[in-house]
Design a protein around this nucleic acid. Structure first.
Lengths: 222, 222, 222, 222
DNA sequence: CATGAATGAGGCTTCATTCAT
DNA sequence: CATGAATGAAGCCTCATTCAT
């Protein structure tokens, strides 16, 4: 997300872009922390240490900012996902990398266990249709990434022959929640107290579940 | 949700309770459909066919209403989950029943692919700390349900010996997303066009993935 | 203008209409006195002795209010003009009545020598196209009234055979300015100090000019 | 208006004056086209092809600019009017020349049927008292010009013996409106569709009305 | 109890003006 | 002199909440 400004520019761009980037970063962080609605322009300005009016030198509106933020995030994430997809790793490793990608995303912003994605699903976001579509695209992107991963894996024999659409959905959900529950909710202990430690071992366990399911011992083990 | 009022009463309860129940139901439905922020008191009043002032005869504030709604929902869901848990079904069937429970929840309200749960995660909800806690409890409840299901299943040998915390998280995420993506997003085709048909077959596939994972063919199959 | 509320109702109308009328009257008065732009919603609210929010109970926006005000004014004026036109008076008397109508209009509102009409011509008004059109209609109405008066007068032999379009324009301008300059500008003496007295005699002189022009003695007088 | 800067200098004058003049011209043009309120400092700067800050090198404020613009316009117009007044033409010709002067004024700026004068009457202009007075003086100047023309004409026997104050008012109004209605309103057909053609013949008719009035046939014609 | 008219705090946005470069 | 990025006062509008009937 640091490179945001080098990748995308709205119509309002000014000289250096450093302040524009500052606003983007501040806004993104606050949206993660407090949500879109509760983040006031004033908050963004204060956080970026600029005047309220300055915001509007760089962005047409709060809505426009969100739009751009989503565009950027989608573009950026898409690139990362493409890189993972085209790597030479096994399907399993690619999925693990996706998980780490999600996790870094989450850790980078805000102390709350809140995913922008989750928030985006909120219909409170449906201020304009443009944003609605972007949010949709955001999910679709991740879903399609996993889907293509599965299809490729199936083709290569690394993945059991499953419905890739269903599989991608399950994977996305499992990974999203697993990621989300790692961060402690603000002021409340996490979903489970145990979640704060042993992350390495727990991650292994998580992947084992993803790949082998929770089902009873396989016939082979008998 | 129809039975909400018979199960729980806030401090404000008045005589009949029927109007109170009407408000609760209306609010719940609208929150599902449009989100908390975008649902105005006026909307609730209109939907319940009462005056705006009447709302405040039964609830101290919009926040209070949400609090109570969550309390009720938690209580109600808790009861349902307890019933499932104490049934004589196999662990697998219990999980399937949980999925159907989630799905009914989703289908009952609103045309949008919006889960109150998802929305609740949104920090836009965090108007007061009380609500924050409730939202947390809401997730924790489902998580703990699945966790105990897993532990019980492991004990009974129906479930592979897994970390129940991690497993419950993965299950909850997978089921939540799978449920969520079944409903078409407003104005946008669902996450995948294929998702609109063959629900029976797809569900089977989904559960197969949950139980057997996506991993390659087991040794036994060789 | 007093009867405004009985003649026209926007979509927002509430019960009695008396408060709505109060707002309309207050706004109309303030627009006359201070102009549209300089009149703040707060001003209207204070003048009508209501809360700022109350304004929006009765009108969708400041723009909408202006629109309605123009609609009303046009409707009302149109009726008055129709009444004058269809009366049995001579054309000359009808024109005199039109002058008095304009003058009453002016005296009714505000201490300033400002005509809503003049103000309306200001492109500052061009907030939306709807309003633009209304302002245009406003002038057109008066112009057409005078035009039809002239045509009728010519037909009846009371008026010299003139181009009615040109004649109506000249009449409208002369009457508007003559009316306008009667009221002292705020803080400045009127256009001419003499304008404050002898209004009867001056009016006669004005009409003599309208009917006989300023040209030299007619041949008949020689 | 091109000669504006050579004729008048405010307190802020700097070296060359050419940039100052540029700003004045740009501002004047834009005020005519869009109105004072809707013309932003940014617009003026862009139109004059200078930086926004540069504006403030030459003028203390937007208000000050308007003040000066009015001062200049008054001075310039005054000179033109003095020239007309002191010419050897007949009174009738002088009035015709005044009309053409007004008309050129109008045609020179902007496509809108908007007279700065009209706009000036708008109290939206009354940002400070100084400006109010200037606007008043602006009208008074034209009024006095016509008044002195009439008095002179009466003295010379070219004009019927009329009240010169009233006569000047009627003339100013008639000429102003006749001028104004020649230009089509933005987006709306002019006050009358016929107004777009035959300007020569129409002008003659207009002056005939001014000089002979609209009254019935004179006795002599009988 | 029921109502809805009234309210004003609070949010987004505009734009004249300042000031560091 | 020239610039334009930065600013914040001020305006419009929303909506949760109150209160008189």
């Amino acid at each position: 997300m640091q490179a945001i400004c080098n990748k995308f520019r709205g119509k309002n761009q000014k000289g250096s872009g450093s302040k524009r980037e500052l606003i983007l970063t501040s806004a993104f962080e606050l949206f993660y922390q407090k949500g879109y609605q509760k983040t006031k322009i004033q908050d963004i300005a204060r956080h970026a240490d600029i005047g309220k009016g300055t915001f509007y030198e760089y962005f047409q509106s709060k809505d426009t900012l969100l739009e751009e933020l989503l565009h950027l995030k989608i573009k950026e994430d898409q690139e990362t996902l493409d890189m993972i997809r085209s790597s030479l790793d096994t399907t399993e490793d690619k999925i693990i990398r996706f998980y780490h990608f999600e996790r870094e995303n989450m850790e980078e912003y805000g102390p709350r266990s809140n995913v922008l994605a989750q928030e985006m699903m909120s219909t409170d976001f449906s201020i304009n249709h443009e944003v609605q579509g972007l949010i949709h695209r955001f999910f679709q992107m991740k879903h399609q990434f996993l889907q293509s991963l599965l299809e490729d894996g199936i083709h290569r024999g690394e993945i059991r022959n499953t419905d890739s659409v269903v599989g991608a959905t399950a994977l996305l959900g499992a990974i999203s929640f697993y990621t989300m529950f790692q961060l402690p909710a603000q002021g409340h202990s996490g979903i489970s107290p145990d979640f704060q430690e042993n992350s390495m071992a727990r991650d292994s366990e998580f992947f084992r579940i993803l790949f082998s399911g929770i089902g009873g011992v396989s016939d082979a083990e008998k």
